[in-house]
Simulated scan of single mutants.
Amino acid sequence: MAGGNSFVIKPWELHGEAREFERIAQDFGKAATALEQGLAALGSPWGLDRPGTGFATVYREAHGGLLGGLRGLAGRLGQVGAGLHGMAERTADADSSAASGFGGGVPGAPGGPGVAKDRSA
């Protein structure tokens, strides 16, 4: 909070956090793939006896759910990043619109009036 009754949103910082979420999502997806490959490399080490077939049944059901959940989580982390980019863009647009109504630029924005929508910075 700045000044007690307001808060400050800096679009360029939101873009930075969005890129961080996108990186985490990519890393998480890679980790899920590595786990899947590692488990596949193990093959089916359980036996064909009664305990082994019981374990195999439970394992196969849990395996699909676990990997699907991990991939879903990676996707949702990426969506958070996309949402933060959208919030940053809408904030920058609202700031620019409000500032132009007063005949000035966006105070404190890097590079002067307005905020560039460049996500690669």
Rank of each mutant, 00 (worst) to 15 (best):
K10N: 03
A41S: 13
L35E: 12
Q37R: 07
M87P: 08
D93E: 14
A88N: 13
L77G: 11
E61M: 06
A31G: 04
G43K: 15
L42C: 11
W46A: 10
E61R: 01
G83Q: 13
W12R: 01
A56H: 04
A25H: 04
Q37Y: 07
A56M: 05
A98R: 05
A94F: 09
P11T: 02
A82R: 09
R23S: 05
A18Y: 00
E89S: 07
A88M: 10
P51I: 06
H85K: 13
P51H: 00
E61A: 14
S97N: 15
A40F: 13
K30Y: 11
I24W: 06
G86E: 11
L39G: 15
R50S: 09
G47Y: 06
A94H: 11
F21E: 04
G68P: 05
W12P: 03
G29E: 14
S96L: 11
F55E: 07
Y59G: 10
K10E: 02
A25I: 10
L67R: 01
R71K: 13
P51L: 09
L14S: 02
G16Y: 05
P45V: 12
E89F: 02
P11I: 00
P45C: 08
G75T: 10
A18F: 03
G16M: 10
G65H: 03
E22G: 08
R60G: 12
A98V: 13
A98K: 02
E89Q: 05
W12V: 13
G16Q: 05
G81N: 12
E13Q: 12
D27V: 06
G86M: 06
L66T: 05
G52V: 14
S96R: 10
R71F: 13
A18M: 00
E22Q: 09
L35V: 14
L67H: 02
H85N: 13
A74C: 12
A74T: 08
R50M: 05
A32R: 04
M87E: 15
A62I: 12
T53I: 15
P11F: 01
A99D: 07
S100N: 08
A82K: 11
A74I: 09
H63P: 01
R60I: 08
T57M: 06
K30D: 08
L14H: 03
L42T: 05
I9E: 03
R76H: 08
G16L: 11
A18K: 01
R76P: 02
G64Y: 00
G83D: 12
L39K: 14
H63F: 04
A34H: 09
G75W: 12
S100A: 14
E13I: 01
A74V: 12
R50E: 13
A40W: 07
E36S: 15
S97L: 12
R23W: 02
W12N: 06
R60M: 12
H85L: 10
M87A: 15
Q37D: 15
A99P: 00
K10G: 03
P45D: 05
A31K: 13
A32Q: 07
A98F: 07
E17N: 05
